[in-house]
């Protein structure tokens, strides 16, 4: 008995010794890779702070020597040659993205709830169409999409950037996994108590979907905030253009002074996506991982 115990302890401590060495090497490796992955982000920040002469070093330097905020001042106050101020594009991006995110959250959760919890006929057919939609690349159907948006008279309005972006197959797929986890008796009990369908949806279903709603918010925010292709096709009016297009115009102007403003614009474009992710990362990471199991 005691021999066995001793053997077990020795084995155990032996494996701990090996583990901690393995752990150490693993930690170093992870740290190296993590630094490598964080580099682009650091580069965006340092570039935005570089004075003009440092921006044109060749070969470019990674770190900034004399940081300055002049680029931001140029971007907001002294950007000539653009038809609309940068702040207008910033507003467009915020307005369009926030509207899309809110509508995506509401309509996707509603659809997932209806699809999973109401035993609707053809639910499987609808679901397989959604799976097909996930595999068909959005880029390939851009022209038919243009014809439809044009036919609906939405070209050159905010609607073209909002309405077509609401129903995304992948989002429904993600939320569906979570709606399935809500116990049916829970909903039935509420129904017995005379709660209406809308009340059940807003008071029970939506609150229990919080983690996946955070995920949905992050993904649709990032996707729409960074979307370059949709406004490129649908918007000609300068006053309606969003940040990615404005950024392209700022950086394509070949005056040297623009380079500083462009690096500041890059920083401003990247910042909200990183912030929203950092604040919501716990939910995102958990629910992405969770949706994988089921």
């Amino acid at each position: 008995m005691s021999v066995e115990k001793g053997l077990k302890i020795r084995l155990h401590s032996g494996s701990i010794g090996r583990l901690s060495f393995g752990k150490f090497v693993g930690f170093l490796l992870l740290a190296a890779v993590a630094v490598f992955m964080a580099l682009p982000l650091v580069y965006v920040v340092t570039t935005a702070l570089k004075p003009l002469n440092e921006l044109f070093y060749f070969p470019p330097r990674f770190f900034v020597e004399e940081p300055t905020l002049k680029n931001f001042k140029d971007l907001f106050l002294a950007l000539d040659g653009l038809d609309v101020p940068f702040t207008r594009s910033l507003f467009n991006s915020v307005f369009v993205t926030v509207t899309v995110v809110l509508l995506v959250i509401l309509l996707t959760c509603m659809a997932a709830y209806g699809l999973v919890k109401h035993k609707v006929p053809f639910a499987n057919l609808i679901f397989s169409m959604i799976l097909m939609g996930m595999m068909f690349s959005q880029y390939v159907i851009q022209i038919p999409n243009y014809l439809i948006v044009n036919g609906l008279g939405m070209v050159n309005t905010y609607w073209a950037l909002i309405i077509p972006k609401i129903a995304v197959a992948y989002n429904l797929f993600l939320v569906r996994q979570f709606v399935q986890q809500i116990p049916d008796p829970f909903l039935e009990a509420a129904r017995m108590d005379g709660a209406g369908e809308l009340k059940i949806f807003f008071k029970i279903v939506m609150p229990s979907l919080k983690p996946v709603i955070a995920t949905l918010a992050v993904f649709s925010f990032v996707n729409n905030w960074n979307d370059f292709f949709t406004p490129l096709i649908f918007i000609q009016d300068e006053a309606l253009k969003t940040l990615p297009l404005a950024m392209q115009m700022i950086s394509s102007g070949n005056s040297i002074a623009r380079a500083g403003a462009a690096s500041a614009a890059t920083f401003i474009t990247v910042l909200p996506t990183v912030l929203i992710y950092v604040f919501m990362q716990k939910h995102v990471v958990d629910s992405m991982a969770y949706s994988g199991i089921k």
């Binding site: 609808i126 129903a167 197959a169 429904l172």
Partner: peptide, 20 residues
């Protein structure tokens, strides 16, 4: 159920299935 799905499904139909 269909009432809940409808808004999303109409959007999906018009801007995803129909173009396909």
């Amino acid at each position: 159920g269909y009432a809940f799905i409808a808004p999303w499904l109409i959007g999906f139909g018009i801007f995803c299935l129909f173009p396909v």
